[in-house]
Amino acid sequence: MIKDRGTIKWTAMMLPEHVQKIKQWKREAYAENPRNLSEWELEDLQQTINQAFKQHKTVTISTWQEAKYAQWTGTITALDESQQLVLETLTAVKRVPFHSIHAAHLEDGSYD
């Protein structure tokens, strides 16, 4: 049986510039487009964030960063006037701009 390694076998013969261009092309080809939120989705998002902040609940926030969605889980410790919220995760404190937030879900704390 022939084992074909795909593009891996060709990278040894390519110049570093070619490898860089191929990686850039793959990032662009598989990049997602951010979806626009409707007015009622934005209101629901705002209510969820306010509830998580006031009740000190754990929240999972989905953000749009570098052509893909990223998720952060933690507690919201502050809502800045600079249009950012401060999210405290297990390992770090992260500042998340409001315009990059696409979803927020409260963790209920009950595990089955």
Rank of each mutant, 00 (worst) to 15 (best):
T7D: 09
V19K: 03
F53C: 02
N33I: 13
I76Q: 08
I22E: 06
Q20P: 03
R27P: 00
H18L: 07
L37M: 00
Q20F: 00
T48V: 04
Q47F: 09
M13W: 06
M1K: 10
E81A: 12
A70E: 14
S100V: 15
L79C: 10
T91W: 10
H105W: 06
K57I: 12
T11M: 06
F98C: 11
D80C: 12
I76A: 13
M1H: 07
H105N: 11
T7G: 07
L37E: 03
E107P: 01
W10Q: 08
Q20I: 02
L90N: 14
R95W: 12
Q51D: 11
E81H: 12
I22Y: 05
E39R: 07
Q24P: 06
R5T: 09
W40F: 02
G74R: 00
I22R: 05
Q55H: 09
L42T: 01
L87A: 12
A103E: 03
A67C: 11
M1T: 14
D44V: 04
V19F: 02
I22G: 04
M13V: 07
N33A: 10
E43S: 09
W25S: 01
D112C: 11
T73H: 02
I101G: 00
Q71E: 14
A78F: 10
P34E: 05
K94N: 13
V96L: 08
L90K: 15
S110W: 09
G74K: 02
E66T: 13
A52D: 05
G6P: 07
Q51A: 08
K68F: 13
L87Q: 08
Y30N: 06
A103S: 08
K57W: 12
H102M: 11
V86H: 10
L45T: 00
D112F: 11
K68T: 15
I76D: 09
E32W: 08
T58F: 15
